[in-house]
Simulated scan of single mutants.
Amino acid sequence: MVVFALAAASGLWLVVVSPSLDIQATYDLNLAAKQMLNGESFPPEILDGIAAKSAPVLEAQPCNFLGFQDLAIIRSAQLENAIVANDSNAADRLSSQASDAAKKSLVCNPMSVVSWTILAWVEFLQNDDTPRLRSLLDMSFRAGPFEGWSLLRRVELQLHILPTLDNSSIEQLKRQINWLIARGLVEVPAQLYLSAGPQQQAYLRNLLAESPEEVQKRAEQIVWNSGGNIALPLARQRGSRPWN
């Protein structure tokens, strides 16, 4: 009787505790993903632990689109860590895992802008500029053109592949940058200008030249303070630096 009672108690503990552990795993996953979308970062070992605990839980919840979206966010960060560490084997594995999580999210929520953006980011990391990348960026824009994290990633990618964009995609890029400028976020195009190539710089300069005077002055100040130079019609004309 004692043995039976212990066995019954053990079974009850598993029934009660296992769902609690599952809930904690998905809670940690969601919290970390939200913070990462807001610009926070986590040490690689933390990301590895969150992914290891939450991935098996989500496999039992095939239409938990938010959970798979969150997992895709974690996997994409792990992928970037693997690339920085020059670990090609881990990068290949995490590319597949990030794409898989994003696709599972889209099965039940085709309008997940984050998942479309992650698929585009992974495609870029694997293959650079491809027709598939441009298609994924278009789907990301259509799903949510002005959602913070996705917008910033998309603008960065579209600028990088600017020479191959069609007119529709160039118009998308213009709308997104103008949206940022209109909301007082001129720092974004100004910082992108600093690291851009000549064609991308010319494109950004032309867009900024169409903005109000205070925006042009702010953009010029940011670029100058960061060691660069940009000539805008309504901003201070400083001349070029010796190294520009």
Rank of each mutant, 00 (worst) to 15 (best):
V2Y: 15
A5E: 10
L6W: 15
A8C: 13
S10Y: 15
V15A: 11
V16G: 14
S18G: 00
S18C: 03
S20D: 13
L21I: 10
D22P: 00
I23E: 15
A25K: 14
Y27E: 15
Y27F: 13
D28A: 13
D28Y: 12
N30S: 15
L31N: 13
A32Q: 12
L37V: 11
L37H: 13
G39W: 15
P43T: 05
P44M: 12
E45I: 12
L47C: 11
D48R: 07
A51R: 05
K53I: 00
A55C: 08
A55V: 03
P56F: 08
P56E: 05
L58M: 04
L58E: 00
N64E: 07
F65H: 02
G67R: 01
Q69A: 00
D70Y: 03
I73P: 03
I73D: 00
S76E: 09
A77S: 04
E80F: 11
A82V: 06
D87L: 08
N89K: 12
D92L: 11
R93G: 00
S95P: 08
A98P: 01
D100Q: 02
D100R: 00
A101S: 10
N109I: 01
P110R: 02
V113Q: 11
S115N: 01
T117C: 02
T117L: 01
T117E: 08
I118K: 02
L119N: 04
A120M: 05
W121V: 06
V122E: 02
F124T: 01
Q126T: 10
N127R: 14
T130D: 11
P131K: 01
R132Q: 14
R134T: 01
S135N: 10
S135E: 13
S135M: 14
L136W: 12
L136Y: 14
L136Q: 11
L137A: 02
D138K: 14
F141I: 06
F141L: 05
P145T: 03
P145E: 08
F146N: 06
E147V: 06
S150C: 05
S150I: 03
S150R: 01
L151G: 00
L152T: 00
R154N: 02
E156P: 00
Q158R: 09
Q158H: 00
H160T: 07
I161V: 15
L162F: 11
P163R: 13
P163W: 11
T164R: 15
D166S: 09
S169H: 07
I170D: 00
L173T: 07
K174F: 04
R175Q: 10
W179L: 05
A182V: 04
R183H: 13
G184A: 04
G184N: 04
V186A: 08
E187C: 04
V188G: 00
V188C: 02
V188Y: 14
P189D: 03
G197H: 10
A202G: 08
L204P: 04
R205Y: 02
N206S: 12
N206Q: 12
A209V: 03
E213R: 11
V215P: 12
K217Y: 08
A219H: 06
A219V: 10
E220Y: 09
Q221T: 11
I222N: 07
G227S: 10
G228P: 05
G228F: 09
N229T: 09
A231Y: 13
A231H: 12
A231D: 15
P233V: 10
L234N: 12
Q237V: 12
Q237C: 12
R238A: 13
G239K: 14
G239R: 15
W243R: 07
W243G: 05
